[in-house]
């Protein structure tokens, strides 16, 4: 790991102090790239878009993912089929999903036709309406929530059955059982999905790239941070600036992650330490 990550990490740090454009000799520019950030309105916009998505998207994905996993964890005839169906969106490549949702979410698309039938006269234009673009991406994310659900599903297998038996003997109902047993036993998985969910939300790229194009959607409404980084590096040929953007990103995310890890001791149930 160290071999293939640490070296390039140092490399990208070095590049962030240059004005390299891939084609010409790089020149050393010191902290110029970092100083530029303060006056770049597109950078501020990209931060806004990304943070908004993280704040609203992550809780929605976590809750729906867990609910879907609980549903799929039931022992019912035909469950293998349902589990496979829920997993299908994960299997589709990004391009197909994007083309599909462009059609479904267009102003005359299927989603809006259904909304009109439900009595909403003027449904939003979703992806092309600046205020609705992020909700649209969240909707698409919920559609593909099956991937997160299978991690929860694996975690649910770990809850020792005798705990449930005990709860049954104690007369606990399903909801109490969930909060008293399932959820605490699931906290290590939860820590994982929450952390990787946040990181994944910060790093949204593929879907935004295909849905909003490299320029980041209408009015920059889909200009997610890494899309902006990509555009600067490979569209605009400013690899140095893009590297500086990346480093600011890493430091900001690291603060969030470390905060969560710090609190983890308090709410994550750990077999290794507790027994």
């Amino acid at each position: 790991m160290a071999v293939f990550t640490v070296g390039p990490i140092i490399g990208s740090l070095v590049i962030s102090f240059t004005d390299w454009n891939l084609l010409s000799e790089p020149g050393w520019v010191g902290l110029d790239n970092y100083a530029r950030l303060a006056t770049d309105p597109e950078f501020i916009n990209a931060v806004n878009v990304t943070v908004t998505y993280v704040i609203f998207g992550v809780p929605i994905f976590q809750v729906t993912g867990l609910l879907v996993a609980l549903l799929l964890n039931l022992v019912l005839p035909g469950m293998r089929i349902f589990r496979t169906i829920m997993f299908l969106p994960t299997v589709l490549s990004g391009v197909a999903v994007a083309v599909l949702w462009q059609q479904l979410l267009s102003s005359e698309g299927a989603v809006n036709q259904i909304l009109r039938m439900l009595g909403i006269a003027n449904p939003p234009a979703w992806l092309t309406s600046p205020g609705w673009a992020i909700p649209a991406v969240i909707v698409i994310g919920v559609w593909g929530v099956g991937a997160g659900a299978i991690i929860y599903l694996a975690g649910l297998q770990n809850v020792p059955p005798q705990l449930y038996e005990q709860a049954t003997i104690d007369g606990a109902g399903p909801i109490r059982t969930f909060f008293a047993i399932t959820l605490p036993m699931l906290t290590p998985t939860l820590l994982f999905t929450v952390l990787t969910g946040i990181i994944g939300a910060f790093q949204v790229f593929d879907m935004a790239f295909i849905l909003g194009g490299p320029k980041g959607g209408v009015g920059g409404s889909l200009s997610f941070y890494l899309l902006y980084v990509w555009g600067q590096a490979f569209g605009n040929g400013r690899l140095g600036y893009a590297s500086a953007l990346s480093w600011v990103f890493v430091i900001a995310c690291a603060v969030v992650v470390i905060l969560i890890l710090r609190t983890a001791d308090r709410w994550v149930f750990d077999e290794s330490e507790s027994r």
Binding site: I9, S12, L22, L195, V229, L239, S246, V250, V257
Partner: peptide
């Protein structure tokens, strides 16, 4: 965990 944060966009060229 921190290495997970570094975007591949930044690592691609190095």
């Amino acid at each position: 965990i921190i290495t997970m944060l570094i975007p591949w966009q930044a690592l691609l060229i190095p």
